[in-house]
């Protein structure tokens, strides 16, 4: 079965506050989708609606082409933003319980608990209560809780927050591995470098709306490009009259320009050459962080 995740035109209001407005995106099987946005942008609300913990005012969430009902939802591995497990329950018992609540049989559940605790390096803590574990290890248990029923889709809200660097590597590995196995993975994060490095596609959400979506390359290409021109003899204001060009900075013969979409970079080069020698002429695509700032500020 093809477990594509479709979020279609989902809206949610709390009284006067608009939490989500026509939120739409698709995550294909085997795709790692990074969800970024400032706090309160609507990432968590979207995920909670996908998991049925919250109901949408309009729009729908489809999984494998079918609206998400309770039975389909059991195929999702979920890591809520608000981390939570029974603090006094033993790691192994707790994971087995959650696996069974997702429809696994007893033997199947116990086998999965051993497999995932071993994979995540917490097998020796299986008989300890969760509260006895370090915060980092509790996060690993939380990830195990999302994976233990062998989900067909992963929805992870801030899976990297609070992880030590080793755990970040383990988490990244597991996500990529699940992706390679054909599982669509959605995760949100504030660590944009991590999102940029891992994600196949990224969605930038702001004020409840999807502002930009695409591969990191597409987003960067679509963003306003910057030109760096090193022309030592250029007088101040040399580029002011050029069409579609905004001077961001000029000092010591180095000029940083922003080109609006459709502006002719060759015209800029010609103008620069008219001032004298040009030692550097470089087009710089914005990083995800810069794009993010741009989108959020817009």
């Amino acid at each position: 079965m093809d477990w594509q995740l479709d979020v279609q035109g989902v809206s949610k209001r709390y009284g006067e506050t608009v939490a989500l407005e026509d939120m739409s995106f698709t995550v294909a099987p085997g795709e790692l989708f990074g969800f970024v946005g400032s706090n309160g942008a609507g990432k968590t609300t979207t995920m909670r609606i996908a998991l049925g913990v919250l109901s949408a005012d309009s729009g729908q969430v489809l999984l494998g082409g079918r609206p998400v009902d309770l039975e389909i939802r059991r195929r999702i591995g979920y890591m809520p933003e608000d981390r939570g497990l029974y603090p006094k329950m033993k790691v192994g018992q707790q994971l087995a319980y959650l696996a069974k609540l997702h429809g696994l049989g007893k033997a199947e559940a116990e086998e999965a608990v051993v497999r995932w605790t071993t994979r995540l390096g917490i097998a020796d803590r299986i008989d300890d209560p969760v509260s006895a574990l370090s915060l980092g290890n509790q996060q690993r248990v939380q990830l195990a809780a999302a994976l233990v029923h062998d989900p067909s889709v992963l929805v992870l809200d801030e899976p990297f927050s609070g992880l030590d660097p080793v755990a970040v590597d383990v988490m990244s590995e597991v996500l990529l591995e699940k992706c390679a196995a054909g599982v669509p993975v959605v995760f949100s994060s504030h660590q944009l470098e991590l999102v940029e490095r891992l994600s196949h596609r990224v969605g930038i959400v702001s004020r409840g709306h999807m502002q930009a979506i695409g591969t990191v390359e597409e987003l960067r290409a679509g963003g306003a490009a910057q030109l760096v021109v090193q022309a030592p003899d250029a007088a101040p204001g040399w580029a002011d009259a050029l069409n579609g060009v905004q001077v961001l900075d000029q000092a010591d013969g180095r000029t940083v320009l922003r080109l609006s979409a459709g502006a002719d970079d060759q015209a800029v080069l010609a103008a620069a050459l008219r001032t004298g020698p040009v030692h550097e002429f470089a087009l710089q695509r914005p990083s995800l962080t810069e794009l993010f700032r741009e989108v959020v500020a817009a």
Partner: peptide, 16 residues
Amino acid sequence: EEKTSRVVELLLSTIK
């Protein structure tokens, strides 16, 4: 206890 530990959200993503 289930609200405080926030485990309830995980539980309610799979049962009613």
